[in-house]
Structure formats: C-alpha cells, structure tokens
Amino acid sequence: MARFTADGKKPRSSRLCRLLQMAVAGDGELLRLSARRSVFRLKDQGADWILKLDAPERSFEAIRARLRRPPLARESRNWKLLCERWPELQPILGVVDAEQIDAARGCFARQWFAGRRGNVWTVEDSAAVGSGMATLHQLGWTDVDLSPDDLLLDDCNRLLPLDLGHAHVGNAPSAASDRCRDWVHLLGGFCLNQRREFASPMLAAYRSAQRLRESDAEIMRQALLWTSAILHRQSRRCLRETRDFTPKKNGIVRCEGIPQGEGSVVEGNSSSSAQETFRMLYELELHGVAALRPVKLQMADSGDWVIEGVIPEPSATLQADLLAAGYAMEENNADGIGFIHDPRGLQRVKPKDTL
C-alpha cells in the first residue's frame, strides 16, 4: 500500500478514490496480498465491492506496459466484451471501474458477486458447472489460468467467472483445444477425491450442450499430469518467506499454531535433506494425500533436524492416492497405518489414477 500511494497520485474516478482510501485505512477485508497485487472486499454506498490494486515490483515495467495491455486494463476490457455477448450478465456485473495510474500501477473495481465458489462445490453442483462451462465457451470465453476459485455459482445456479485477467473473450465460440485445456485446469484444481467425484457428472452435463474431442479418461489423464507438475513447483513455497511459512535461522515455522495430535520425523543432521522431506510432506498435503501435515522444522538439542506435524486421518485408498499424485511407495516401506509419516521411501513416478 505504501508503494501504491507513495507519490500521492490518485485515480480520477471518485469511486476508485473512495475505495482506495478505505483500503489504506484498513477498512474491509483483505482477500489477497502479494508482491504484485492486493485484493480487498469493501463496502461503498451500501454495496459490496471488490478492489484490485496492481503494483508489481518488476524490472522494466514501463517497457512491459508498452508491449502489452496492463493486466487490470485487460480484465476491464474482457468484462465489457463478455457483457456484449451475454446481456443478462450486465445487471449482475453492474459498473466496472478501472484506471491505469502509471505504467506500474493500476486500479480495478467491480461489484461483489454473491454465490458459491469452487472450493465449496458439492457433487450436486456438477450439472450446473458443466452446463455453465458450455455456455461460457459458446460465448467465446476461455482462461489459460483457470482454477475452481476463479468460478462461482450464483443464487440462480449461473456459472460466473470471477477473474478475467488471464482470460480471452473472442467473437466466436472457443476453440476445441482451449475447451479441453480449460477442463484440464479446472479439474486439476480439485483435490483427488473431489476430482474423482465431480469429473463424470460435470463432463456429462457439458457434453450435452458442447462438443469435446477428448474422452473423459484422456482429460483426467492430462489433469493428473498438469496437477502433479504444478503442485510440485508450488511446494517450493514452504521453503521461503510467504504468507503461510517463515524461514528462520534454525528451521521453518508455519504461520499457525500446532494443533493437538502431533507427530514428528527425525531427519538427521543434514539441513538440505530435512528441507526436502519437509517439502515432500507439504506437496502431499497439497494433493490431498493422507500424510503428516508439516508445521515446523527445527534443530533439536542433539543436533538432529526434526519435522513436527499433524497426523491426518488414515486413508483406505492411500496407495492409489499416492500414485495419482505421482509417487509410489516401496512395499517394504508400507507400514499399513493408512498415512505417510516419513516420505523418504517414496519414488517419483508418472501419475496414474487407478480408482
């Protein structure tokens, strides 16, 4: 926020000014905070609004702005294009305000959408999601960075996109390759059990209105490969300063208390090996595999590195879950207790869902 308001420049829009002042004052709810963007939920004149402030700390930002439209300006343009192709969206969306203050700073505001995001969907929502995806693709919408959190079912069971920053809205229905990619990314964003439960009814509802060249099995296979690669890369975040983890001189601490029912792994005196084990446990957690949930890495008085974590509920499908996450357990390392306590015996393999 200090970087965004450092030189006193303000948006020309009175609404954006009011929302920015409320955000600076600490009003409302902070939804996202990163080096690039802050996202707030604020109330203005009796209505809830979402405010996005873009101020990335990147080199050559002025050159980037010349080569490509700034992200919040792209999002504003995409909302207008989508409303032109889908008139019933306009009353829901209301007013969209967006301004680029300079090459490195932009503001965007729209009204808050009420409904259920992808992280709380149930199998009963599958048909509405499938038919909603067919509608959006028919309108020319596609999103290269799609995830369940980017979609919402409103009170009328309409599927609405929430973030159009990486989306494309064309003048014709989306291409077949884009439709397949969107499904791979959407299904890949669910945990293993949800993906198994949601995929068939969602795709069946979609196919009743829109064509897909790929079979359900092929889409699920691609989703497994994509998810495995993404979560393996994302698991590195537990080793650096983030909203959830804090590296310290003698280890790593998760930014939350340790609940009751802890377990621990004694890792020896190698710091790099201990960090790799900590990361593997976190990657399995991201996949939804029953594994010790790592919350602290520290050096004990003996000189050994110790990982403390929360013991999960045992899983009857542990071996299949591991294989779907891209790992296999050697038979002589299987302890039969239904969860992974120490991942050092695991081997990386090509992901495959056998359930």
Results as ranks from 00 to 15, higher is better:
Glu61Thr: 12
Glu99His: 11
Glu84Arg: 15
Leu30Ala: 04
Arg110Ala: 03
Ala73His: 00
Glu99Cys: 06
Leu93Tyr: 01
Leu51Trp: 10
Cys83Ile: 14
Ala55Asp: 09
Pro71Cys: 08
Lys80Pro: 00
Ile50Trp: 04
Leu89Tyr: 05
Gln45Ala: 13
Leu72Asn: 05
Asp27Lys: 13
Gly118Gln: 03
Gln45Ile: 09
Ile63Glu: 03
Leu139Asn: 04
Ser126Arg: 13
Val120His: 04
Leu31Cys: 07
Ala55Ser: 13
Val120Arg: 15
Leu53Pro: 03
Gly28Lys: 05
Leu82Met: 08
Arg77Ala: 15
Asp97Asn: 15
Ser76Asp: 15
Ala62Tyr: 00
Trp49Thr: 03
Ser126Lys: 11
Leu139Ser: 08
Leu42Cys: 09
Asp125Tyr: 01
Trp49Tyr: 14
Leu67Val: 06
Val95Gln: 15
Ala65Gln: 10
Gln90Met: 15
Ala103Asp: 11
Arg41Met: 03
Arg77Ser: 14
Gln138Gly: 15
Arg37Phe: 00
Ile92Cys: 10
Ser59Pro: 02
Gln111Ala: 11
Val120Tyr: 00
Ser76Val: 07
Leu72Ala: 05
Glu61Tyr: 13
Glu29Pro: 00
Leu139Ala: 14
Asp125Phe: 01
Ser126Pro: 10
Leu67Asp: 00
Gly140Lys: 02
Arg105Asn: 04
Ile63Ala: 11
Ser76Tyr: 11
Ala65Phe: 05
Gln111Ser: 10
Thr122Asp: 02
